[in-house]
């Protein structure tokens, strides 16, 4: 019982930590809530689709390219940045939505 409690607390502590190191970006009205973000290597962004249309965050920056795939309204996606550099993100569907991420 005691062991279980401790492990639950550990998990909670971890979760809290993860949240603290995370920037949250919302997408309502086909707009990212942030334009520029600075992170440390290993940091992550939590993208919340609080909009009424599907979005699709991706990057074509050399060495940092990724595609999170289609993100429907209500869905949340976390992307972790593992390498230092400047990464340009766009919504593949709505190219007016863009963010510059600096990973240090």
């Amino acid at each position: 019982m005691k062991v279980l409690l401790v492990s639950i607390m550990l998990v909670l502590a971890f979760a809290a930590n993860a949240i603290a190191a995370q920037t949250v970006v919302t997408q309502k009205g086909r707009k990212f809530s942030e334009k520029k973000i600075e992170l440390n290597v290993g940091g992550s962004i939590k993208f919340v689709n609080d909009d009424d249309v599907t979005h699709n965050i991706h990057s074509t920056t050399k060495g940092h390219a990724f595609d999170v795939g289609a993100q429907k309204p209500g869905q949340t996606i976390v992307h972790t940045f593992g390498k230092a550099g400047k990464v340009k993100l766009r919504c593949a569907i709505h190219p007016k939505m863009k963010i510059k991420v600096t990973v240090k």
């Binding site: 086909r30 699709n56 074509t60 593949a92 709505h94 007016k96």
Partner: peptide, 29 residues
């Protein structure tokens, strides 16, 4: 919206899919 979408036209042109590869939603967009 100045955006890119596949609206289901049946031709073979994959549009933006040829420019930005490996994004499913950009095939035929």
């Amino acid at each position: 919206d100045s955006g890119f979408h596949d609206i289901g036209l049946p031709d073979d042109d994959i549009g933006r899919g040829k420019i930005v590869k490996n994004v499913v939603k950009l095939q035929h967009a």
